[in-house]
């Protein structure tokens, strides 16, 4: 399943990574070599094998419905690049 530049551009777009032409060409090579290595998986027959998402067969613990957090806005916004009136600022979002 070899990738082409358009596939890399598509992935870059989904991942919001800006790539220039040169980057994209280089990544096509890298990714194809990695995927060629990954493609060894196809040699294994995994019919009827359940996928494993977590290494331990544990189940989700549930938290009691209690408010445990208090307002720390100023504290958390100290590391924010752009805030005003307590809001995070981003370029105008057009709907």
């Amino acid at each position: 399943m070899a990738l082409e530049q358009a596939d890399v551009q598509r992935a870059a777009h989904l991942a919001r990574l800006g790539l220039n032409e040169g980057d994209a060409a280089r990544y096509v090579d890298d990714l194809n070599r990695i995927l060629a290595m990954v493609d060894q998986l196809q040699r294994l027959d995994t019919t009827d094998i359940a996928p494993l998402s977590h290494p331990l067969d544990a189940t989700q613990r549930l938290r009691a419905d209690e408010v445990t957090e208090s307002d720390q806005r100023d504290h958390f916004q100290r590391c924010a690049p752009a805030v005003e009136n307590g809001l995070y600022l981003v370029p105008r979002v057009v709907e």
Binding site: A82, E84, N85, L87, Y88, L89, V90, P91, R92, V93
Partner: peptide
């Protein structure tokens, strides 16, 4: 997202 005008920005 709040679209009031913050110098042409959107507030979140």
């Amino acid at each position: 997202s709040l679209h009031e005008d913050f110098h042409g920005m959107t507030g979140v």
